[in-house]
Structures are given as structure tokens and as C-alpha cells.
Design a protein around this nucleic acid. Structure first.
Lengths: 252, 252
DNA sequence: CGGGTGCTTGATCTCTATCAACTGGTGTGG
DNA sequence: CCACACCAGTTGATAGAGATCAAGCACCCG
């Protein structure tokens, strides 16, 4: 039996928003798949290739990258352990962006058709997956607003708070500190900033005592950061507040 | 019987990506709802209110707006006739952004619970709606990349080409010309630019002969615009290419 | 006619990108 | 074991993009 701990983590994530029926949970847990390993920097799924699998992160750290003109790259999403990376492509036949590892990463691969037939059997699960893609969309919107409206320091702060909240949700924050394998280049590609400007703005935040970094990131003054960046974690939908109860709704 | 032409247009949009079973189509067409009218500038759905309806645009022009610190606004999406605006909130209990009319607009309001119970009866339709939200997410990603990586003239060109493609899909482009009721302020809020800078960059595009505007927008040099902005309409998923066949997939 | 709204323009200043160089750590191969 | 390359991070100088401030114009509408 392949190691399906990625699925267990993913189910835990879904169930933070609302319980699944036992039957749906069991079936998802038993879904066939294979585990793959990737080194830091590896391209996990290339751009513009047939899309036939869903990938769930088991460990490590992953991003989605759109490549534009002359090598300009925009990271459009980050994914932590327990995140489903490729649900976005479940209904598309080709990928429209690239998936990349930023650390040694283990992933669990599910064939689209297997997940597809599961959603036909499990209506509540299908809704939970749909909900998960809606949460992703909510995060995309927030990134658009972050990049469009905030200037560098607040923009950086907002992303750091998002990462802190998401790492916290999977128990990977201790003493307001989490370790995140991203280079400054990667951060700058996610934030629409140049590397140099990111570096300098980050130092501004450090000098102000808002955060500190030594191989990991520490949120030293959460309140000040929240105030300066206007961070409101609602858009992450990490728990059941503001989310419909899928089981009750199914009965209605 | 209320005028459900908005639903008919929405079905047409969904079916450009793949046919629905007759039964699903008929049921959606018969879904109960009410028509509302809005003046230009009206807030159709406010931010942070209970989310109980899905809104489909029948005529006019609508945007979704996130409001940040000190009145900074980011438009995160535009919606044309035949677009479902609020599917994004179908699974959330409160709205996390505002919906606003930019022209005299007519909308069709469906209660969440009605749409919900329909998706329980119609599996293919449920998938089509899910797919529609995935297309929205794809557009959000593209906007993130557009705002993050392109500078003003290319950024503007990219948005204009998106609007041209979407208006063309509903037959509202003649001679490379479409009418779009957005003010320059609205454009600047969508693009993360200041009004003044948008205005000046737009004039650069006009002087280059790439576009012209007089109460409507004309794409004078499509090829040049595509080249300078790197526009590739795939992300809009306006047709069935690159999209799974929902009926076949249901049989698999 | 007056006032509002949307568009335009110029001047100025700030933010951010770009260019270039340098540091320190890590790893590799001769 | 050292030389070397490479990569992430850092720093300074400069240029350009874009924001902000301030006015003025054109049009529509009451």
C-alpha cells in the first residue's frame, strides 16, 4: 500500500471547514495513487502539458508559476503539505502554468479519472472539493488586491502573515516562527517586486522590529504587521466559519 | 413568468465549453428567480453581508471590488451579460467583496438553496458550474500575473484584449470595436494603476495607433497589441478546447 | 446657468527597477 | 586541500516608472 499520508492531511484540511460523511472520507482515503519525490528546484508538472493527475503535497513546499515574456515569472500560488495543487486543472485538459518544488518535496499523484469517479459517488465530497477550489480563488483575488494596491513593505507583510496563518493551521508554527524554504528571488516573483527591492523592503521590516529571519521567519509584532498590511485571514477560509455546512446543505 | 433570458445566456456560455444533458439544461432554465434593475454606480451586493443568492448578469456591466485600507479599491473581476457573478460565494456564508454596476444593469437572482438542490439532481450541471468557477480562478491568476509583471501600457493592452475576447464571445464586437461603460477610474482600479498614470499610458497606446476610443474601444492593431502584451486567450476558456467533456467524463 | 463627473495636462516627488559589484557560504573537482 | 564556481543575499548608484498634487477643460443634466 502506498503511503497516503498526503491524503490524510488533505482530508484533515477539508474537514477543518466541515465534517465529511464517513463513507466519503473512507473512499477518498483509499483512492489509488503513487508517491513521487522531488528535489528543490524541480519542475513537478510542466506548463502546457496534458493534465491527467491531481497532485497533493505530502511534505515540502511547492509553487505555481506562470511564465510570461522574456522569462518574467509570476508565482501565483504557494502550496503547503496537505494542499491539493492541481485541482485547478481537474477540468482542463492541459496545464496553463507550471508546478515547482522549493524544497525537497514528496507528492501524492491521483489520476483525474479516479478522483472524477469518486465525485460521482460522493456528493458531499464533490462539494468539498469545489469549495476547496473556491477558497483557492478567494486567495487569488486577495493576491491580486495585494499586488495591485499595496506597496512593497505592506505587500511583503501581508504575504508573510498569510504564510504564517497557513503554516499555523497545519501546526508548523512555534513561537510565532515558521520555517519557509523560499529564496528572496521566489518571494519577489510572488509579489511582483524586483529581487533588489524586495531585499531592501524586507530589511526595512526587520529594522522596524516587525519580523526577524534566520533560516526561518518570525513574526515579532503581529499586531503592527496586521495594522500596516490590512491582513484579515477570512479569505483563507481555514476553518468552518463563513462556510456552508455541506452535509446540512445536502439534506436541505 | 419572470424573464429568464439571463439564464439562457448563461447556459449558452456553459455550453460553449461542452453540451449539457437536455434534462439539466431544462431544469436550470426553469430555476426560480427574480429580475432586478440597477443604475450605473449602484452597489448590487455589499461587502460582508450574508450570501444567499447567485446573481447572473442579463444586461449591463458589473465588477467585483475589494476595498482595502483608506478607501483603496481593487476591482478583481468584470462580468458581462451571461456571466454568473456570485457563484464564487455559493459555498461561503458571507460575501468577501462588493458587487457593483458600471452601467444600467439588469440581473437575475437565484436563491443559493435552489441552485444547490439543482446541483444535487444534475451531476453534469454541477460539474459545469464547478468548471465555471475554475475558469474564473484561471482569470484571477492571469490578472495577478498581469498586474505583477507587466508595466502600464502592456497591462492595459492585455485587459483590453481580454475584454475584446469576452465581448466577442457574446457577439458584442463589430469591426474590432466594442462599447464598454467603464470609466478611466474603474480601469485604473482594476489594473492597480493611478488614474493619472492610466490616462497617460492609454494615450501612449492611442498615439501609437494601437487602439482608439470614442465612447467605445477599437482594437486597431490586434497583432501589435498581442505581441506587446503577451496576450493568449487560452486562460479565458471561452470554448471547448482544453476543457474536459463533462458528459463523457460522467460516463467514464 | 451652475455644478457635478469624467477626462486631460503639467509639475513634482516617491517608489521601484535596473545595473553593477561584492560578500559569504557551499559544493565540487583537480 | 585548495581553487574555483555558483548561488543567495547584500549594498550603492542611477534611471525610469508611477503616484500624488493641482488645475483646467468638456460635457451633461437639472
Amino acid at each position: 500500500m502506498t503511503d497516503n499520508s498526503a491524503i490524510a492531511q488533505y482530508i484533515a484540511k477539508l474537514e477543518r471547514r466541515g465534517r465529511l460523511p464517513d463513507d466519503d472520507r473512507e473512499k477518498l482515503l483509499r483512492i489509488p495513487g503513487v508517491v513521487k519525490e522531488h528535489a528543490a528546484g524541480d519542475v513537478i508538472i510542466a506548463n502546457n502539458v496534458p493534465s491527467e493527475h491531481c497532485v497533493v503535497v505530502q511534505s515540502g513546499f511547492v509553487s505555481r508559476v506562470r511564465t510570461l515574456h522574456r522569462g518574467a515569472r509570476q508565482i501565483v500560488a504557494f502550496h503547503l503539505p496537505g494542499d491539493a495543487v492541481d485541482l485547478q486543472n481537474l477540468l482542463f485538459t492541459r496545464t496553463d502554468h507550471q508546478i515547482q518544488a522549493h524544497a525537497p518535496t514528496r507528492t501524492f499523484w491521483i489520476a483525474h479519472k479516479d478522483l472524477w469517479s469518486l465525485t460521482d459517488q460522493c456528493q458531499v465530497l464533490a462539494k468539498a472539493l469545489w469549495l476547496d477550489t473556491l477558497v483557492d480563488a478567494s486567495i487569488f483575488r486577495e493576491w491580486t488586491a495585494n499586488i495591485g494596491q499595496r506597496r512593497a513593505p505592506a505587500r511583503i507583510a501581508h504575504l508573510f502573515l498569510e504564510l504564517a496563518a497557513r503554516f499555523a493551521a497545519i501546526g508548523m508554527v512555534r513561537n510565532r516562527t515558521f520555517s519557509c524554504p523560499l529564496t528572496q528571488t521566489a518571494f519577489s516573483e510572488a509579489l511582483g517586486l524586483s529581487l533588489v527591492h524586495f531585499n531592501k523592503s524586507l530589511q526595512t521590516l526587520k529594522r522596524a522590529g516587525f519580523i526577524s529571519t534566520k533560516h526561518s521567519i518570525t513574526i515579532e509584532k503581529p499586531d503592527d504587521l496586521v495594522a500596516m498590511s490590512g491582513f484579515d485571514p477570512t479569505y483563507l477560509h481555514l476553518d468552518a466559519s463563513r462556510v456552508v455546512d455541506l452535509v446540512e446543505a445536502a439534506d436541505a
